[in-house]
Design a protein around this nucleic acid. Structure first.
Lengths: 196, 196, 196, 196
DNA sequence: GATGAATGAGTGTTCATTCAT
DNA sequence: CATGAATGAACACTCATTCAT
């Protein structure tokens, strides 16, 4: 009931992010704001103070993981041949998306409150995937006419499945998509940038 | 105010389906029940009488199109080589899904009210797709280790994208998935059924 | 908790209007919708069903009184000379406005939700006042260049005073305004209609 | 972040008043405190420190203008005959009120937070108006039985109109009220003070 | 003095669902 | 069979105000 303010600001923010992560995992990213506030032991307005737009909270919650996913690309590119690096990374991205209940779906929300989310993904992950794609394409292992952002969204969309379809579904579908990337590959192909 | 008789009952049901189709197209399948009732010129309870579960209404609305999609397979199989038949049909299915706002997403609803929907799709479309897949696989044009229902759902999921990603996105992603089907193909392969 | 529906509809609506009248009187016309619903022993959505816009509720609450005020003009015109009839009627209108806490102020709300209110007043009371004004003007007892609706609003505005200024304030100010009407009067003056 | 000193204190206060003026003009005197603080580049608590009651801020914002309005009376009285002086001053007062969005209405707020506002007006403007009234009354140009404060509030109330009624509405209504003042005038009348 | 984070009550509004007629 | 009034839980969001630093 009494809550100090200045010094614990950071603590509160941490609690908020942690609570949001739990609640998102349990109830999806559309969970009531109050649930998150309550679980964080924080007033509801505090959530709005830090994250006026819901998508900003979502982005913040997954920021570390998104950043981690983006960062992983470099190591993968170093330690693996292009195509394997690409594959591994897409799998990693798949895990990122598939385990976050509702994250994938919320990328497609028409609501203006959610526009920040795809933007965040685009900014942080598209360049990474583009690099991996280009590298693999330059070796003729995958086709070179696939837009990185589209692929990103495609993979994400494949991960929206919840129950019903069995476990591993997302994984298998993404694998299929990856195989699709290999199909039109041409050795020694020229890199072609495809706008959307 | 209106004295109902048997003839009106059918008329009501037709109006209901027509109204639901329009409303679904405009506002998505999560549109308020009241909107549909109003547009159908029918009491709201009438909607509930006919379709206690929302998913039943959705299924009913798209029944004809789903049936049509299922039925189209036979002709395609007759007039095209196996792989082309498969491709054409998946494109047809894509159109079915992609143009119905929110249909794809609602297939993934955890809500018990929606469980009838994937069931309906499974019953009517999985066998059809399985046939097409088997035919193509038996000729070595596509791999034979892909579960038909999974593929169905995968394609549907690729169609959930709304704005943001450009037009044609679903189409391109589905094409990519189809290419993936071709990748592991082995001539003369044995049909293998993959349970979920 | 249990509330029958069809037959008691009218009873509910009456309760609603009665409750709204009390609440408006106590807390002004901006009172929380919930207060009214509670006092009427009715669910909150019932209020919204009957009066989606707040101003519609206000108008409905005062409809009888407004209508009564409008109707009174005829008798006044019959039983009194023009100027007296005008004066009496304006006093009656003053009482209507002055005793309804916040009514006058809500006529000036910029909010679109309140636009129905001035419209209602205009439709029902402007013609009445115009008649009275014309009659008095044709006898040279009041000036003939005053727009009826403007006067209506002016009188209403003079009644927004709440506390602070003593009792009878509105009355006295309106009297002053009426005296103003007499000032520019010219015998045998031509009626002139003044648009806004 | 900012190390305050005495000079900054005054600067803050100035910024506050300036910001409040702008915000009041744009959003009315009920505008969120935060808006003002933000625009002033000042912490929100600083606003509360200087003006614990909202009405005090309002009064402070318009103090200069109110004082100016009060001061103008003297010159008007010197340069014009009593009635003209009175008229000119009321028009000046009208402009003061009519151009400050929501000022007039806030004079009628029942809220305890606003009690300082009418008090401020009363203290600074009532004596001035009383003088003008008395002067005109002593020459028989206006009636002598009108309470100055009541008239002040009456004129203010006539200026609450926002949209709907056409431009110039306040002006015309105030003119009408002024005409009313002339009506009961008696040459050589005894000054009579009317308490509230 | 100044700060601004935190608070939480308050309010409008929506919608699925029930049930007496 | 059909109706549509009634319900109330649910949720988003705002804002005045306090208080430890």
């Amino acid at each position: 009931m009494k809550k100090p303010n200045r010094a614990d600001a950071q603590r509160n923010l941490d609690a908020l992010l942690e609570a949001a992560k739990v609640v998102f995992g349990r109830s999806g990213v559309d969970a009531p704001v109050r649930d998150i506030a309550t679980r964080a032991g924080v007033g509801i307005a505090t959530v709005y103070r830090h994250f006026p737009q819901r998508a900003e909270l979502i982005a913040a919650v997954y920021r570390r993981e998104v950043d981690g996913c983006a960062a992983a690309a470099e190591a993968l590119a170093r330690e693996h041949p292009p195509f394997e690096a690409l594959t591994h990374w897409l799998h990693r991205f798949t895990r990122l998306i598939a385990t976050k209940r509702g994250l994938a779906a919320s990328l497609n929300h028409r609501d203006s409150a959610y526009q920040a989310l795809p933007a965040y993904f685009r900014v942080h992950l598209e360049p990474v995937l583009r690099s991996l794609l280009d590298a693999a394409a330059s070796q003729g292992q995958v086709r070179d006419d696939v837009d990185a952002y589209e692929l990103l969204r495609g993979v994400a969309n494949l991960c929206v499945a919840l129950a019903d379809v069995g476990p591993g579904h997302s994984q298998r579908m993404v694998d299929l998509l990856i195989d699709g990337l290999r199909h039109g590959a041409v050795s020694g192909s020229r890199l072609r940038s495809v706008g959307r």
